[in-house]
Design a protein around this nucleic acid. Structure first.
Lengths: 340, 340
DNA sequence: TTGTTTTATCGAAACGTTTTAATATATTAT
DNA sequence: ATAATATATTAAAACGTTTCGATAAAACAA
């Protein structure tokens, strides 16, 4: 059958303990012995059996990745890219990332992902908005976890955040500097702290440049539901009818921006000549819309990598204080906001 | 510490063997004993430790999901949905799906996914086009695998296929029945058997209705690279310039169709009035393009589920003969091909 | 009745690792 | 020279399951 540590020990003329030591780079083992063992390992291309190792060490070698069902299935490739970033990073340590989705309605007794029921993960990444009972559960069970692109106000959890404020600020400032005077905001739910931050960036950019009209709130269209294309379309229609002077719309994310573009086009206005559009996220479709969407580039793979790294550090140093890491973003000027 | 099978045995006043028997529903155990044990299990909400179980059974409880890097990162949410379908199905048996990506250039010695290096999976699903050496490797190592939306001509492997031929046939026939006379085809690489089949469906629909012009090859634009938006755009531009009489374009998939739409719009032609467009796949963006794209709906989640089921059967009955399962598709008429 | 099969339970081995503690040798400090 | 420490190796226990074979009682067949 498959090659075991015994075979290695036998061929190398040492005990299995010694083989284990070189495998895990622990304790003292003479350089010459180490080399001999390593040779045998390479020759037989031996790999330790994970389940045996896990049984002995009580580690699982897995991290969970939990995302709201609607988010993973969405048009946008956002969280799937974050997931991919984690997978890339996990390769270094031979960790596996187990993805699962959760519903809005969530009862820890009923809906617990199976890798939590079976304690099959050393830690969990929660991507985007996720049921709060789930977070409480993890906290209570002392399972290491990281919130990715989310946070609970007032709670000091481990977070990977996007620099939403500065991204929004720069986007809006860019619109201002290219001559736009009446800049609107279209967004979805403020349940999501990221959206809230983007709105703050929007308002403060306006204020800095003296374009503050009631803190921009006149020009803000928000619905308290999940962001989507249709909100963007409705928002654009609504705002442009009410305030014909609007010459730019900053959308809380690219998906919404796509809807905004549709809405503007439906009104037979030209982008960017009549109205400039700016998004946030840089989802793949943004590059291919007509016109191509100006947006804030968010490095999704890197977010995933950072989430993995934090999680990994967390299990190495269990006493580590919760920390927040902020991923910076880039401004991406494309057709939808180019200078006219 | 955590609850083990010993605790259950102790509390129930039986041996651990008996507990194991009820856990796995094997052998003979008296109904009354079974009930007693089950009660204790439920009371303590005991879950067997996977790594211990795996060590004993030599099963891993994992399936691998391998997809070409470019495919998972792509604009479209196709294979990520297939993956999600597998994940859903896997919940029933508490299996885990380990996703990883591979590159075009693939050497089994170097680039083997870690779950194969470590033999951490009981089987593998290969989604879309995947390096042939990888397939050979799995075959040679006798690792159960399923090709999803792919096949190797002449080889009898386990496959989940989309009904590409009939889908394409129906799409084109639909265009014909709505009055189109000059129907073109835009596609990418024929390396992918699915594309080849879709082209066959296109040609045979033309023939059936006597629209055969040199088997439709005059009106076919194909480039031997991966399908993409830009191919669609180039194809549309090329074909419409050369054959101004063209009044409909069937694209090998939705991504390409998006490019086709851009191309047509760039030429200031109207969709569907001047030219109808039909896609294939029903990716989420198809619903939101302007105009909304008519397409062939492919049930991606179901494909994933079917792949899982086949894989699961495969490890239960290792001697099972390779089989092909075909997932049927639906016609979806939207704006881009509606009757004018 | 006796012998066979079915039902029920359990002890013990096995799965392939890691880790602890023991032992032995070599090196360094006093 | 001796004690202390650092280096090197190992035997054996432990991790939590499944499964094989043994044992025994109960049911059935002759």
């Amino acid at each position: 059958m498959a090659i075991t540590i015994k075979d290695i020990a036998g061929k190398a003329g040492v005990s299995i303990s010694t083989v284990s030591l070189v495998l895990n780079q622990k304790g003292y083992v003479a350089p010459v012995t180490k080399k001999k063992i390593q040779t045998v390992i390479d020759d037989l291309s031996y790999r330790p059996l994970h389940s045996a190792r896990k049984l002995a060490t009580k580690q699982t070698g897995n991290f969970g990745f939990i995302v709201w069902e609607g988010h993973f299935s969405e048009v946008e490739m956002f969280y799937s890219q974050v997931f991919l970033g984690m997978e890339y990073a996990a390769r270094k340590n031979d960790y596996y990332i187990l993805l699962t989705t959760v519903r809005d309605k969530f009862d820890p007794k009923e809906d617990l992902p199976r890798f939590l029921r079976y304690k099959d993960v050393d830690g969990v990444a929660l991507a985007g908005r996720v049921p709060e009972p789930l977070i409480r559960y993890l906290d209570h069970q002392q399972i290491p976890f990281v919130l990715v692109d989310y946070e609970i106000p007032g709670e000091n959890y481990n977070c990977i955040k996007i620099d939403n404020y500065n991204g929004a600020f720069r986007a809006v400032e860019n619109l201002i500097l290219s001559g736009r005077k009446h800049i609107a905001f279209v967004g979805g739910t403020f349940f999501h702290p990221s959206i809230k931050e983007r709105h703050r960036g929007y308002r403060e950019a306006l204020e800095k440049h003296g374009l503050n009209n009631n803190h921009g709130d006149n020009y803000s269209y928000c619905e308290n539901v999940e962001t989507s294309r249709s909100i963007g379309e409705k928002g654009a229609l609504h705002l442009l009818e009410k305030y014909p002077e609007i010459d730019a719309i900053f959308s809380c994310n690219d998906t919404t921006a796509m809807g905004v573009i549709s809405g503007i086009q439906r009104l037979k206005k030209k982008i960017p000549e009549d109205i400039a559009v700016f998004g946030f996220d840089d989802i793949p479709t943004a590059e291919f819309s007509t016109p191509k969407l100006s947006t804030i580039h968010v490095p999704k793979l890197e977010i995933g990598k950072e989430a993995y790294k934090l999680l990994y550090e967390l299990i190495q140093h269990p006493k580590m204080a919760p920390q927040t890491r902020i991923i910076s973003v880039d401004t991406l000027i494309r057709e939808s906001s180019s200078n006219s």
